[in-house]
């Protein structure tokens, strides 16, 4: 689903992402970890067709990041903690807006909206402004909206920051469910226990991918009890900040 080969991005003489290579398979939950400033955001922006790489190759959902960024955008979903839904639109209006952006027909949007509010148990809330909902609800809805157009890959940028521990886990169960249905999930997080929920985890340090394996594989390789220990050991050696 994602294939990156020596993918690189420089800003002036600063190399934010330095020749990273990796592949992510269909239906895989791929954890993309790194210290603040390691280059995660830059790498994500290249993979989502928002930033042209300086060097290297990458395809996402079979499309080339240089030649076909617009096709990529149609085949991916995106959600972040910082921005997801419009606070001053209602639940239904947000769904309709995103449905429109992704070119779904009116009939399809209506059907999807009904499905979605039922699935999330939000029927009573459907005409409420997003701004009035608790954060946990917003995040769950934002995730479903990111999947509205049935993308091949969904990019989640710190989706659970500040969310309570029960909702955080419900969120991960949503992730498992869509992965089981075949959607590829590319996720960043600062919660190290969430790294354990991924099929494979990569850890970026100073623009490079310093480690990439299953959680169990990483722990074995670094002789560590948990992913936090692996992460701290790798990130301690980092040269640069944000």
């Amino acid at each position: 689903m994602i294939k990156a080969e020596k993918l690189t991005r420089k800003f002036g003489d600063f190399t934010a992402v330095d020749h990273i290579s990796f592949e992510v398979g269909a239906g895989e939950i791929f954890g993309f970890l790194g210290a603040n400033g390691a280059g995660k955001t830059t790498a994500m922006r290249m993979l989502t067709g928002l930033l042209v790489p300086t060097e290297g190759e990458a395809t996402v959902a079979g499309y080339d990041v240089y030649e076909q960024p617009e096709q990529i955008k149609k085949r991916i979903g995106y959600m972040s903690q910082k921005f997801s839904l419009y606070e001053d639109l209602t639940v239904r209006e947000n769904i309709r807006l995103y449905g429109g952006i992704y070119d779904l027909g009116d009939q399809q949007i209506k059907q999807k909206s009904d499905e979605l509010v039922n699935m999330l148990g939000m029927k009573e809330l459907q005409n409420k402004m997003i701004g009035s909902l608790p954060l946990g609800w917003k995040q769950k809805l934002a995730f479903s909206v990111a999947l509205l157009h049935e993308p091949d890959i969904v990019f989640l940028d710190e989706p659970t920051g500040g969310v309570d521990p029960i909702t955080r886990r419900q969120f991960w169960e949503q992730i498992y469910k869509v992965a089981e249905e075949g959607t590829t999930v590319f996720v960043t997080t600062h919660y190290m226990d969430e790294a354990e929920y991924c099929d494979r985890v990569s850890i970026m340090v100073d623009g490079n991918i310093d480690a990439l394996d299953t959680p169990a594989g990483l722990k074995e390789q670094f002789d560590a009890d948990d992913i936090e220990e692996v992460f701290i050991r790798l990130a301690r050696g980092a040269e640069r900040g944000e």
Binding site: G34, A35, N36, E158, G161, G162, H190, M192, E228, F231, I232, A235, R236, A238
Partner: peptide, 10 residues
Amino acid sequence: TTGVDAVSRK
């Protein structure tokens, strides 16, 4: 420590 990586948090 919100939004700060595990090393800086420690």
